[in-house]
């Protein structure tokens, strides 16, 4: 009688855990869980990588879980089937070799996976160097995101519109504190930092509207700094670009300075045309002496897109991409 009660008591936590896992699976199945249901190539690779690493870990974890309950049960004090008791047995070369060896093997394989995947999923790597890319420059502000399409001369606030099945090449910076640019449905996030330009390459394989996250705390308006990502077919994208190019608000340095002032709960806005080299100037202004007016460099700027990129490489010594 007492035995059965004990057994039930031991079984209880496991039933509870099974219940929680069941509920979790049910919840995930009924909701949009972007990290597990990615809509972009990078996100999909990362999801597969996660499942692979998880499965490899279970090779060690499952034995631990089973052994813990079996050993606890069999060698408990007062077990009527008195099991062997060896109080002085404290080492075994064989056993210890096994549990140094197996984790070393598994972690060894995972290390190779890490090395390879770190290079494949490097945010700086262009997904498909030959195919055309859409360049978008991202600026984190207090508390909104500015997206500049330099080759289209347009910009938007808190809404990112991208064509599907095309590599989007992001340059990311901040004109305030640090933030992190993250679109869970598409993949990787990268920090946005003032005076520095980081890069990220993503694509969307399915049209849709996705959640964009400010993944790093940036002050009191931080929670309202989310943005909407609309992935649309190339045709719709072209139409959107054309429509936006008709927006009547210029984004000059002066207009930008007004936009950059702290504000919360910002609406979606569009700008056209955008002053050439604006992004460059935003990054560079942290490199200038404090007494120099910020917009000076852009006043004299007559750069085209191509040599703007060249200039960027020359002028941003603190650009993160220094390892290659």
């Amino acid at each position: 009688m007492k035995q059965t009660r004990l057994r039930l008591l031991i079984a209880l936590p496991f039933v509870f855990v099974a219940l929680i896992i069941g509920l979790a699976v049910w919840y995930v199945a009924g909701h949009d869980v972007p990290v597990l249901q990615p809509r972009g190539e990078i996100g999909a690779s990362e999801q597969r990588l996660m499942i692979l690493a998880l499965l490899m870990s279970t090779i060690v974890v499952i034995p631990v879980f089973v052994m813990t309950v079996v050993i606890s049960w069999r060698y408990r004090q007062g077990n009527p089937k008195r099991k062997q008791y060896r109080p002085d047995w404290d080492s075994s070369k064989l056993y210890e070799t096994i549990w140094w060896g197996i984790p070393i093997l598994i972690i060894g394989v995972l290390c190779v996976v890490t090395w390879v995947s770190s290079h494949q999923l490097d945010p700086y790597r262009k997904l498909n160097p030959e195919a055309p890319q859409q360049k978008i420059q991202v600026v984190a502000l207090d508390w909104k995101w500015l997206f500049i399409y330099p080759d289209k001369h347009i910009a938007s606030v808190n809404e990112l519109v991208i064509p599907t099945n095309q590599t989007i090449s992001f340059d990311i910076t901040s004109d305030t504190v640090m933030n992190s640019f993250w679109i869970p449905a598409l993949g990787s996030q990268i920090y946005a930092m003032p005076g520095m330009s980081t890069a990220l390459h993503l694509n969307a394989t399915e049209p849709g509207t996705y959640y964009g996250s400010p993944a790093n705390i940036s002050g009191s308006g931080f929670a309202s700094m989310t943005f909407k990502v609309r992935a649309v077919s190339p045709n719709e994208y072209d139409a959107w670009v054309l429509g936006t190019q008709n927006a009547s608000r210029n984004l000059t340095m002066a207009a930008y300075d007004a936009l950059a002032k702290p504000s919360k709960n910002n609406k979606v806005e569009y700008f056209a045309p955008v002053q050439d080299g604006l992004y460059d100037d935003i990054v560079m202004k942290y490199m200038l002496p404090a007494d120099q007016p910020q917009s000076q460099s852009s006043d004299t700027s007559t750069k085209t897109d191509d040599n703007m990129n060249m200039n960027m490489d020359m002028h941003t010594p603190m650009e993160m991409d220094m390892t290659r």
Binding site: V35, G43, S45, E46, Q47, L49, M50, A53, L54, S57, T58, V61, V64, F65, L110, V113, T114, S117, S118, Q120, L121, P123, S180, W182, P184, G187, S188, Q189, I190, A215, N216
Partner: peptide
């Protein structure tokens, strides 16, 4: 041990990019 598994996931940069700060 469960925390250890999620730690191994976070240790892979490619996975961390998707769950960092989350």
């Amino acid at each position: 041990t469960i925390g250890g598994v999620t730690g191994v996931l976070l240790a892979v940069p490619g996975i961390d990019f998707q769950v960092h700060n989350s």
